[in-house]
Amino acid sequence: MSEQETRYRSTRDLPSLHLLGTGTPMCAGCGGLEALHQIYDQLGERSLILNAAGCMTLLAVYPYTPFRGSWLYTAMASAPAGAQGARDALDILVAQGRLPPEEDLRVVVLTGDGSAYGMGLSATSGAIERGLDFLYIVYDNEGYANTGQQYSGATPHAALTATSRLGAGFPGEKKDLFAIWVAHRPAYAATVIGAEPLDLARKVEQALAIRGPKLLLALAPCPTGWDFDPQRTVEIGRLAVQTGVWPLKEYRDGQVVHTKVPRERKPVEDYLRTQGRFRHLFEPERQDALIAAWKARVGTYWASVET
């Protein structure tokens, strides 16, 4: 987005009033909550959130809620189907004159990566295909965190999780959910991170201005699941961007644009070293092959972007 088009020209323009309530049961230092509270600053109370089971369904444990508007808990695979139902119901109410158009709600899915990259993928694909007007927020902590960080379709190669504890860690590869969305030609898709609030605010602003299926995919550093001190959430988030591990980009009008390209990428190791889930790459012996594979993966990605 060009600078003229946005309300958020500099960090000073970021919202100083936070709309999401405090007192939630998320862990101290939760990177997912950091991204959500920034998104909610713009989303506000005229929203209906459909929350797929995960850490964030604990946000609204009866009778407590940090939200100003409505919230509904769905099964892990069903949030996009719930969103379709909610959107249809709201449309009918407005069409029948039972809900004034100015009281219409924005339909929002809030989901973890376990649902978004795995269990909920088929329902999501269908919703995009039908052109559903909804915002789809993923907080990607790269595992089934709520149940003790088992690996998911978003877990990166070699990470230790509760179900890849031994040897070289998770043998698989992280899926590219952004590319999966883009292949559907949605109205909008973007990657974000709570550690970069200005980039995030512009993308939320952008997404809220467009009708149709819209993705906000937030990498969510998770002190509990990734094993680091809660104080380092932002440092690790920034490193994910500076090392090129988490490319910040958006898709609109048929184009993918990188919104924050690190001028000189820091070594990938700077990111890996911060987290206990990758400690076995460095201790007791350095695992050169695994580290080289990480570097190659990140390098190949950026080579394809830069050409």
Partner: peptide, 16 residues
């Protein structure tokens, strides 16, 4: 520079 700590506090527990 509240936009730093207030935006980055995961809990939104720093107001301005």
């Amino acid at each position: 520079c509240w936009w730093v700590c207030s935006s980055l506090c995961p809990d939104g527990a720093i107001h301005v």
